[in-house]
Design a protein around this nucleic acid. Structure first.
Length: 594
RNA sequence: GGCCUGGUAGUUCAGUUGGUUAGAACGCUAGCCUGUCACGCUAGAGGUCGUGGGUUCGAGCCCCAUCCAGGUCGCCA
């Protein structure tokens, strides 16, 4: 193996230009590809900036020529030579007009044949990519993603700094609070039987920082939730977390719109228009069946309940007793949505608890419908009219005794259809704020109300007196930033009043002792002058994923976990030795499988 | 915890109603080759068909169980 002795890299491979022609330079990198034509050898040398072609011929010193012939993919090379113009130009790469005519070649490291080829557009199984993540991360596509991520973080720090925000680090080892997601727990050696939790977010600490007078806080914060994974959900993830004092909802939304404008302008060169539209939660549900509507396409929900209130169809009648009937119109999709395709859509909505999917297809040959025979011609006509139906359309109807099921299934179906019918234009970024969320959500499992956002969210001013009498009707001073149907951030104005916070805990079913045991430090703090405050947190991973139009958050995280929350490369989590467990006073008791 | 999809050479895949020696492309190895850049030509190596059972004269293919990966519902204050 050779050393770098006596050589110093001139610059990155991709940075050489025709201006360097005639200069003696040194380049380093990995072998992307060798083309050995006999006496004439070419090597594509790759680093994070791009590719530079190395050239060798019969006038090349023998030692360098032999090493060039021996070089294989992913060898690490250092090459000294003269930059010269190529005899034939490669227009595909930035350095395509030039090459490095090598006089001294060093093989700094050899490489086994990699388990997959290091190329941008790979279709290798993700499982393999993750096992050899260090090789996967060599691919230009991954490097681009991680560099974009770096850029967004830097833009965030710059932007919030320019606006008077102070970055403060909050603890990673904190007190467990059983509200919300499952905590990751860390045993304490010094306090046998006691545990720290990893933070699900820095929520309470940032509120306390407001109380301490820092006025504007931000942090690039790692957060942890021990819940099942999804394409856009990892057990550890990063938030851009902010909090501000003496503000209302509009103040928080405005400053954060400014960050999005900057991030998209400087990150992608795209102009995003602010202010973003504001849409109350109820409107989002009624029009899109979702609290994070994708507004890049239409196909909005339409309520048919009133038209069908006297109809003879038992399925519809049954639904109307406690729920509703709503529909979407897949414009001009009749030719694509055959009976067979619609059957698949029926299965699709069933995953959202819908009991079925009624439809009517308006084709050239007439109407074929799953419910026409149960309705009068007047009712059918009224439906067609309200849906704006024309020949070629397909109307898809969900009726359910639980309106939430109608929203969930149609909202999801709307997005699924948009994908299948190609209604979404690439490169479109539609932002909006969803506001006026309900304060509570009834939990069937626990038989009580739970906070929809979190228990520190300020109720809407006009609902303050309903907190005890009608909690289900209370709205929250909460807002979510939605981009292309994804929640990229969310926040609220917080409670800063001891009495109101105590009422809130009571509404959530905590008695005073429990509230003090869990959040006593916060309640005590409120006794010492807490300013009005509010903030929000962005999911950095999701934001970068959306900006780069990736399908999975894993493509913008260097070392992600897989679906069972383990890491394929290091094989963690893993068992630890007896001694470590003894020090922690921990005994393992895994239930034996039958 | 439920449902759906996938697992065959290093990689991506094909593999007929269950039937002879499981194929292709790329990659890899060796040889030849002076302007390649998807280099070309010639030859070659490479397979516990995820794993364990079962059915059968015979299983990559059928059945059962199980593991791994992906998607998703529940879950994610």
């Amino acid at each position: 193996m050779d050393t770098m002795q006596g050589l110093k890299r001139t610059k990155y491979c991709g940075q050489f230009t025709p201006e360097d022609i005639g200069k003696e330079v040194v380049a380093c990198g990995w072998v992307q590809k060798t083309r050995d034509l006999g006496n004439l050898v070419f090597i594509d040398l790759r680093d994070r900036s791009g590719i530079l072609q190395l050239a060798f011929d019969d006038a090349t010193p023998r030692d360098a020529h032999e090493k060039a012939g021996a070089a294989r993919a992913e060898f690490v090379l250092m090459a000294k030579g003269i930059i010269r113009r190529r005899e034939s130009v490669n227009k595909e790469i930035a350095t395509g007009e030039i090459e490095l005519y090598v006089s001294d070649l060093r093989i700094l490291a050899k490489s086994h044949t990699p388990p997959f080829e290091i190329t941008d557009h790979t279709n290798v199984k993700e499982e393999l990519r993750l096992k050899y993540r260090y090789l996967d991360l060599r691919r230009g596509e991954m490097q681009k993603a991680l560099m974009m991520r770096h850029k967004i973080v830097k833009l965030a720090r710059d932007y919030y700094d320019e606006n008077g925000f102070v970055e403060v680090e909050t603890p990673i080892l904190i007190k467990s609070t059983p509200e919300g997601a499952r905590d990751y727990l860390v045993p304490s050696r010094v306090h046998p039987g006691s545990f720290f939790a990893l933070p699900q977010s820095p929520q309470l600490y940032k509120q306390l920082l407001m109380l301490s007078g820092y006025d504007r806080y931000m942090q690039v914060a790692r957060c942890f939730r021990d819940e099942d994974l999804r394409a856009d959900r990892q057990p550890e993830f990063t938030q851009i977390d902010i909090e501000m004092s003496f503000v209302d909802e509009e103040d928080v939304m405005t400053i954060n719109e400014g960050f999005m404008v900057k991030a998209f302008k400087e990150g992608l060169g795209i102009d995003v228009k602010a202010p973003f539209p504001r849409m109350p939660y109820k409107e989002a549900m009624d029009r899109f069946g979702s609290d994070k509507p994708d507004t890049r396409f239409g196909m909005e929900l339409t309520d048919l309940s009133d038209i069908l209130k006297n109809c003879e169809f038992k399925v519809f009648q049954g639904a109307l007793e406690t729920g509703s009937i709503r529909a979407i119109n897949a414009k001009g999709a009749a030719s694509q949505l055959t009976r067979k395709e619609i059957d698949k859509l029926v299965d699709f909505v069933k995953t959202y608890q819908a009991k079925g999917l009624a439809f009517t297809r308006l084709t050239e040959d007439g109407e074929s419908s799953s419910f026409e025979k149960f309705l009068t011609e007047d009712e059918m006509h009224a439906i067609r009219e309200r849906m704006g139906a024309e020949t070629g359309d397909v109307i898809l109807v969900v009726a359910d005794g639980n309106s939430q099921t109608v929203y969930d299934s149609l909202g999801a179906l709307r997005c699924e259809l948009a994908k299948r019918l190609g209604l979404i234009q690439k490169g479109t970024f539609n932002f909006l704020w969803v506001t006026k969320f309900p304060l509570f959500e009834y939990s069937e499992e626990d038989g009580r109300y739970a906070a929809k956002h979190h228990p520190f969210t300020h109720p809407a001013m006009e609902d303050l007196d309903k907190l005890e009498s009608d909690p289900g009707a209370c709205n929250a001073r909460a807002y979510d930033m939605v981009l292309n149907g994804c929640e990229v951030g969310g926040g609220s104005i917080r409670i800063n009043d001891l009495e109101l916070q105590q009422r809130m805990f009571k509404a959530l079913g905590f008695d005073e002792a429990t509230a003090y045991e869990r959040f006593g430090f916060l309640l005590d703090a409120f006794k010492y002058g807490a300013p009005p405050h509010g903030g929000m947190a962005y999911g950095l991973d999701r934001l970068v994923m959306l900006m780069l139009e990736k399908d999975s958050i894993r493509d913008v995280i260097a070392f992600p976990k897989v679906q069972n929350a383990s890491e394929l490369m290091t094989q963690c989590p893993a068992e630890v030795d007896e001694k470590s467990l003894r020090e922690l006073s921990i005994k393992i008791d895994i239930a034996q499988k039958e």
